[in-house]
Design a protein around this nucleic acid. Structure first.
Ligand SMILES: [Mn+2]
Ligand SMILES: [Mn+2]
Ligand SMILES: [Zn+2]
Ligand SMILES: [Zn+2]
Lengths: 150, 150
DNA sequence: GTTGGCATGAGAGTGATTCTCACTCTAGCA
DNA sequence: TGCTAGAGTGAGAATCACTCTCATGCCAAC
């Protein structure tokens, strides 16, 4: 989404978070992050490898796994047979997804703060009523994208 | 969820929908529907086979696939390595999911109509602004369930 | 009662993801 | 600056949820 951190801060922030977990920000992990940042939308692993041809498949999967573990990357499922990967929200901003049921395209959307706040209040109420302690939420809006609409 | 159709109507409704698509409501498909109805929450395929031991894995998967194609069953991903299956909303009611990040339990929740309406309005606005024609939405509330909270 | 076509299920196949292991790099110390 | 222990890498093997195949079963319509 629009409000990304400048690259320098992005990488510094990621390095710090990895360090907190006793992990290093290696060249491979940085290459994966760069590819995700360059994509600017959730992408599949094949797409990731296409963005940076020097990446090896097994290492890309492993770097993503480490980055997910420390909270730098988020993995999305729900569409197609490949998972989608994107930078975590603390590196971009809280957002949700528009999913085209025809072509599988996924794009980020942000909702007005007013609406987010109202949703959080409601979710907290209904979850608590069922003995759940809610931590966060995901909203997926399914429909048809511009290019798939005739 | 609470407001299920009585069994007779449930099966009649499903038979009709299958017929619309030139499909039959066979014993196997009915057994799968019964198992899902009995579960009352999204369940995995292994769980389904456990509920009805007479079901064969390959046939259960195929029956689910047919039932999904005609809109009687919905498939959820997002949690664990097995997909979750539940009866479609027109057989139960529009609802969303509470997902325990600790044990993977998934339970249904309904939101107040007022909130659903407000969300739909907002989703329509933001989607349209991005050239998307929104059709429906899914909300997942992640947190910790009662038994996982110490 | 025969026949044609869909349904079933055991087992084989598929493919995204994960694991293995021999090799490489690097951080930290001498 | 050299050494070394431990972490990182990647080609290929393995895993496993799910799908496909095909021989057989079932049923409806004549
Ligand atoms: Mn939100
Ligand atoms: Mn809703
Ligand atoms: Zn599309
Ligand atoms: Zn739990």
């Amino acid at each position: 989404m629009g409000a990304d951190l400048p690259d320098i801060d992005l990488h510094r922030s990621i390095a710090a978070r990895l360090a907190e977990h006793g992990q290093h920000y290696t060249a491979n992990r940085r290459a994966v992050v760069d590819a995700l940042a360059r994509a600017g939308a959730p992408i599949t692993l094949p797409d990731l490898l296409a963005v940076d041809e020097s990446l090896a498949q097994s290492s890309a999967y492993r770097s993503l796994s480490v980055l997910i573990d420390v909270g730098v990357v988020r993995r999305l499922v729900h569409v197609g047979d490949h998972a989608l990967f994107e930078l975590a929200e603390h590196l971009t901003e809280h957002h949700h997804h528009l999913i085209c049921e025809s072509c599988g395209t996924v794009v980020d959307v942000t909702l007005p703060d007013r609406v987010e706040a109202a949703m959080d209040r409601t979710f907290d109420e209904v979850a608590t009523a069922l003995g759940f302690a809610p931590l966060h939420h995901a909203v997926d809006i399914y429909g048809t994208c511009a290019t798939c609409t005739p």
